[in-house]
């Protein structure tokens, strides 16, 4: 009698787990159903790349769900099936400072069914130049396309006395006080930008690293640091609410998502950075037809009105680049960061 009941409960638990598994697969499934009409549209493209793609494509996000890279991946997923007969599955593999996800993609088969998004982030352009990592960002991946760049928007709290970079720098020089700067992490672009500003202007900037952008921004809003910065989607809601005031963007040119925020150079500070580049890559050795096919799909994605709308909501600029161009750009940015790290004497001690 009791035994029977016990089995029933165990069965119930199993069913609950099954329901969950099915629910998790749901996103992929509904996407599969949607793609019958688009299949016809893509027959031409499919023919050129022999049979690829024959099965769903997995895109690894080496960060936790909910971050800016994850949001970009979801925005791509939303419109992907309009341009490709096979759906994409977004899989988050966070952990070990985004190393786990990269290691996984590096060791995956180079057949075009496992891709990585976020190629060009600090973990590719900055981290490997500071400490040993189990992947070579230049050799272990084949670039497919650049989708966006997350610039660093330098901000002060809404009630701060500073209205421009010049006011901040003049104050620091006359008062001779250290300028505390709330930054996301020690290996992140915000930290490099802040140190770069300190170096070229001669003021004493003290970066205070956090465990990620959200915490750094919260501390800045609370007025616990004089200056700080974050990516567009981190700071935009707070700029809108008047809790943060943007002073500058760290790119060589203005960020298309923040056209009103001047660059550092426009304000007489001779420094720029490449922000956090958000591209898609495959394991090294992926066939060229596959890379070109995927780049073609991503180009169409980048021009899709629905995708543009999502990216506008996320405050991420669309900055598409094809495989060859992106590879060149990646190398340049990598070398530039290497030079910055050397010039600014950045170490992890």
């Amino acid at each position: 009698m009791y035994r029977k009941k016990a089995w029933r409960i165990l069965g119930l638990l199993m069913v609950a787990l099954l329901v969950l598994l099915i629910a998790s697969g749901c996103g992929g499934k509904s996407a599969t159903q949607n793609n019958t009409p688009s299949q016809e549209k893509n027959e031409g493209a499919a023919a050129t790349s022999s049979k690829y793609p024959e099965k769903p494509i997995t895109i690894i996000v080496p960060y936790a769900a909910g971050g800016s890279t994850d949001a970009l991946a979801r925005a791509i997923e939303k419109v992907w099936t309009k341009y490709c007969p096979q759906p994409v599955m977004i899989v988050n593999k966070p952990g070990a400072g985004a190393v786990v996800g990269r290691e996984f993609v590096k060791t995956s088969k180079p057949d075009g069914y496992t891709l990585m998004i976020g190629y060009g982030s600090g973990e590719d352009l900055i981290g490997p130049q500071l400490q040993k990592v189990p992947y070579d960002p230049l050799k272990d991946f084949t670039p497919i396309a650049r989708m966006s760049i997350h610039s660093t928007i330098i901000c002060v709290p809404g009630n701060s006395q500073f209205k421009s970079m010049k006011e901040l720098i003049d104050w620091a020089k006359t008062s001779n006080q250290p300028v505390t700067a709330s930054v996301s992490t020690a290996t992140g672009n915000v930290n490099i930008t802040m140190r770069g500003i300190g170096k070229v202007t001669g003021i004493n900037i003290v970066p205070i690293p956090h465990q990620g952008g959200a915490q750094a921004i919260t501390d800045l809003i609370g007025g616990h640091a004089i200056v700080g910065g974050g990516s567009g989607n981190e700071v935009a809601p707070h700029i809108q609410a008047g809790r943060l005031r943007p002073l500058a963007v760290d790119l060589p040119e203005r960020d298309p998502a923040f056209p009103d925020v001047p660059t550092l150079k426009e304000q007489g500070i001779n420094f720029y950075s490449w922000g956090s580049v958000k591209g898609i890559a495959a394991p090294a050795g992926t066939p060229k037809e596959v890379v070109d096919y995927l780049a073609g799909v991503l180009k169409k994605v980048s021009e899709d009105p629905e995708f543009k709308e999502s990216m506008k909501n996320l405050n991420q600029p669309i900055l598409y680049m094809g495989p060859e161009e992106y590879q060149k750009f990646f190398k340049e940015a990598y070398d530039y960061f290497g030079k910055l790290i050397k010039d600014l004497n950045i170490t992890l001690q």
């Binding site: 998790s24 749901c26 996103g27 996407a31 909910g66 977004i90 988050n92």
Partner: peptide, 9 residues
Amino acid sequence: SLLLPVVYK
């Protein structure tokens, strides 16, 4: 995070 794609729709 598993259900985000469903929610987006």
